[in-house]
């Protein structure tokens, strides 16, 4: 199993009650999973914990067989570099780097720069004409396509996507989702996607709902 989340709990400092109360789920390699839930239900928190971005209070998470609870800061960073890729609602590209440099950034950090694969991704994402531009010179849809390209360029085992189309209009949203799912399947990457949209959730292999800090 690529990702195993087992009875994980999490309470933010200063919060009166836990945001996650014993969540468990699994995700196999190459599988796609949608997680829906109300605002504040803990969807993004669970995604961040799965990506080794934050620490949990109880339970355990295994990523590629490795338990996350025992990892220090450097170990978690290494895991993110090599196994995980992220796509966020705000795109979160690096503003000082060009589109081409953003696309190759994560793959180079992971030590897996594959020029041909990145060129193919660039072509498939319709970014070939935009490689010399900077993020601030792109539309929202274009920026999100760059973010997806950056994530997949590293051929990660797991792609975590947090409301990747939340900032886009319906047309752009559909186009970006189509591309992402197509490329995820093509690269054999597992996808853990957080969304509000039932329509998007239905397009994935599995669909879970989070409420009151538990998977229901």
């Amino acid at each position: 199993m690529l990702l195993e989340i087992d009875d994980v709990t999490k309470t933010y400092a200063g919060a009166s009650r836990p945001v996650l109360r014993g969540v468990s789920l699994t995700l196999a390699a190459g599988q796609t999973l949608a997680l829906t839930g109300e605002s504040g239900s803990g969807k993004s928190t669970l995604l961040h914990l799965a990506g080794a971005l934050d620490r949990f209070d109880g339970g355990e998470i295994h990523l590629s067989g490795q338990p996350l609870s025992g990892l220090d800061d450097a170990g978690r960073a290494a895991l993110r570099r090599s196994h995980v890729a992220l796509v966020f609602q705000q795109f979160n590209l690096i503003p000082s780097l060009s589109v081409a440099q953003n696309l190759a950034f994560h793959a180079r950090l992971a030590g897996r720069p594959d020029r041909d694969w990145i060129a193919r991704l660039t072509e498939r994402l319709g970014l070939a004409e935009l490689t010399l531009r900077y993020p601030e010179q792109l539309s929202g849809g274009q920026q999100q396509r760059v973010a997806i390209g950056r994530a997949l360029a590293a051929r990660p085992a797991l792609l975590l996507a947090d409301e990747p189309t939340g900032n886009l209009d319906e047309t752009a949203s559909t186009a970006v989702m189509d591309l992402m799912l197509e490329l995820v399947r093509e690269s054999g990457t597992a996808l853990f996607l957080v969304t509000h949209s039932q329509a998007i959730a239905r397009r994935l292999d599995r669909h879970l709902h989070l409420a009151g800090g538990r998977v229901v």
Binding site: L53, A77, R81, N92, P95, S96, F105, H106, L109
Partner: peptide, 16 residues
């Protein structure tokens, strides 16, 4: 922060 956070998320440690 918005410039550093993505680099951190992509695998650089806070100490780096």
């Amino acid at each position: 922060l918005p410039q550093i956070a993505p680099v951190w998320a992509l695998g650089l440690t806070r100490s780096q």
